[in-house]
Design a protein around this nucleic acid. Sequence first.
DNA 1: ATTAGTGGTGTTTTT
DNA 2: CACCACTAAT
Length: 727
Amino acid sequence: MSFLEGLNPQQLEAVTLPHQSALILAGAGSGKTRVLTTRIAWLIQTGQISPQGVLAVTFTNKAAREMLLRISAMLPINTRGMWVGTFHGLCNRILRAHYREAGLPQTFQILDSADQLAMVKRIMKSMNVDDEKYPPRQAQYFINDAKEQGLRAPKVEAFDDFSRKLVTVYESYDAQCNREGVVDFAELLLRCFELLSKTEVLREHYRARFKHILVDEFQDTNRLQYFWLKLLAGANNFIFGVGDDDQSIYAFRGARAGNMLDFEKDFHVDKVIKLEQNYRSQGNILDAANALIRHNRARLGKDLWTAQGSGEPLRLFEAMTDLEEASYVLEEVKQLRSEGAPLSEIALLYRSNAQSRVLEHALFNAGISYRVYGGLRFFERLEIKHALAYLRLVANPDDDGALLRVINFPTRGIGNRSIEQLQDVAASRGISLWQAACANTLSGKAGSSIAGFVRLIESMRSACEALPLPEIIDHVVELSGLIAHYQNEREGEDRLENLGELTNAAIAFVSPEGPATQAQEGETQPQEFAALAAFLAHASLEAGEHQAAAGAEALQLMTVHSAKGLEFHAVFITGLEEGLFPHENSISEQDGLEEERRLMYVAVTRARHRLYLTHAQTRMLHGQTRYNIASRFLEEIPEGLIKRVNTTKFSGFVSARGFDRGYEVKSPAIEREVSGWRVGQNVVHAKFGAGVIVSAEGRGADARVQVNFRNSGMKWLALEYAKLAPA
DNA sequence: ATTAGTGGTGTTTTT
DNA sequence: CACCACTAAT
């Protein structure tokens, strides 16, 4: 089998492991995806299983697509019927096939997190819960967390009034979701889990089918996902898990690297195979990554090595401001490009999405094409959300969230008063807003406006029956009045274009390559709007990746999180500052710092040949300038691997060519000065350690400076007494 | 009923 | 700064 050639001994062992469950501890760049896909190809090629008998689970749609691509490169088979997808995608698939047994309408809709938050707010308002005391965001988090533990409201343990209140919110939230026929992300998993738990027939059906279950990024599974896997595997099937505890960066959404240990026990994994040879990065980069991650306590233990040479040192640049940082990055990108590196092989990474703005600005002015991943995605744009809401109403009129979004957009004379009356009717009779609207108990002008809206949706439904999906979308968008509305708006051009794109997305969706043709399990009574529901599900589950048109010759901008699994010739890790990266919120969290460090580890290991580390002394954040000291992670990388590249050209001031924000940027860091100390200056204190001066006041004996210490936080120090030294 | 304007508030990361 | 929620004016 030619596809086995070139595997190293550990990889080969993993790929050809006989029937048993296995855990592959695969470091960054060690050929994890290759092992996983080759394993599948080997199982099929040796006749141990048919393509339909494979279940492969990933966390992103991108990873799933990549996997299918690689499999079809190795085997001359049709991968279309294969079950390769994300947890959410696969659960969606199962629930669509067995919606009845799952207690869902056939056209059930999926709430994205924004929809979910809106729903939580609505529920809390209807329950008269004080949203000052109980922030809706926290309630949302509470609900998701519970679901990710596999717990329904009655099972959640609450030991204080606060939690008890949130439990009641959870309970009514779920009740309302059921009434409306909508599910959130976590619900997809929980509902599917419950379905398989309680329905033996189905459980056995899937168990009999999927003899081999392969799991990518095992360290990112949460409790519920692990239970789900266990349930599906039963006593006789095998799980092949691949993961890297050092790359666990999703604890904030319930990921539990400890699942790997449970897996070892529960599935009697007698041999853990470690893949430690890295084929991606040159030595210095790898050494930096290893040194960094060694600062973490909770590790399974693993050290990467490479047969490549040590390569270049890492380049560290300290900027005065975020603008200067951007201009440095820009210059280096130009340089790399002139050396022949394709732009698509260069990545600009940052901790949080907001940081992309400054970089984008500089790139835009310089005319360098770039692509930003994440941020607001296609299906999350306002005009798209509106169009989708109309479509959701067509598929499932009981969707209150969708109705509320568009009942008065474009405006048609239905104001808050009317909506409140509708809500009262709906609440008192226990019906959906749509049903309340149809009953139309209101009189006068409000009543006729609502009747008009009801007729509008009805006409959409009847016009679209038996139409192919793309035409449904054209129709609905047209009838909704959104087109007319945006034509009259001055900034409407882009929005109109996006609405057009929506149709294209639908065309792509129903085309032979699209997921729509994936064979549906079992009995599918093709009901009128099933295709529409499938498309809407696709929109929720794949919100972002529409714009990820790969291959484009553009610089790649993304958060470190979304860079996981990717690699580039050159990587810039920007904003390496205390408070940003590691993020200040993470410091107080349990194990937060270690997760941040793993994140940094992921960032570092994205680079093949060249790695830039940059930070700025001052940065615009929350609309005000903040002073930051260098990230502790920089100190955790051995000096010998790093070359400082600050040049006179880039010291002191924003470059004269003026990257301004439309207003004058004050010369940084020397605005205020006291007794020879200046704001922005790095200092060392005998007791508090390293820090940066953030403000100063007084003179002579009264002179004081405020210092942000890395480890001790903010302190005011009287210069006359404090033992302060320049850093 | 709608909108413009105001003030207060908060934000990591994402399937 | 940007998004919300609420208020005051059309």
